[in-house]
């Protein structure tokens, strides 16, 4: 059983705003706490439409981001995408925490 995750990036951190995301990390993780695949995608521009379309076409199951507006949160939720928002921290650390099953909305992971 694998899970496809998308992390909104800003430099090496989780992007503070979902709608201003220009770069994403897409990872496939499995139940044995391993990251099977990772790829970074640079978007041509910050576009909510493009980002939502990518999330749906890529079959993303979990989205990790910073601030997101309620309507996009509800839209993704409606499309069966789990959104962990208001997450702050380095993306590797965040991914590690997710793999361990310990990541939740609002987590602040600062070393």
């Amino acid at each position: 059983m694998t899970t496809k995750v998308l992390i909104c990036l800003y430099e090496n951190e989780v992007c503070p705003r979902f709608d201003l995301t220009r770069e994403v990390l897409i990872a496939v993780i499995d139940r044995d706490a391993a990251v099977l695949k990772e790829k970074e995608v640079v978007l041509p521009q910050a576009s909510l439409e493009m980002l939502c379309q990518m999330i749906l076409t890529e079959g993303i199951q979990v989205v990790i981001c910073g601030g997101i507006e309620e309507e996009y949160y509800q839209y993704l939720k409606w499309k069966n995408v789990k959104v962990l928002d208001s997450v702050i921290g380095d993306c590797k650390l965040v991914l590690q925490r997710l793999v361990q099953g310990r990541l939740k909305s609002g987590d602040i992971l600062v070393e």
């Binding site: 800003y10 951190e13 992007c15 503070p16 705003r17 201003l20 910073g66 601030g67 702050i88 602040i108």
Partner: peptide, 10 residues
Amino acid sequence: RHIVRGDFCL
């Protein structure tokens, strides 16, 4: 930027 999350931050 993680607290303010403004459109002017990034």
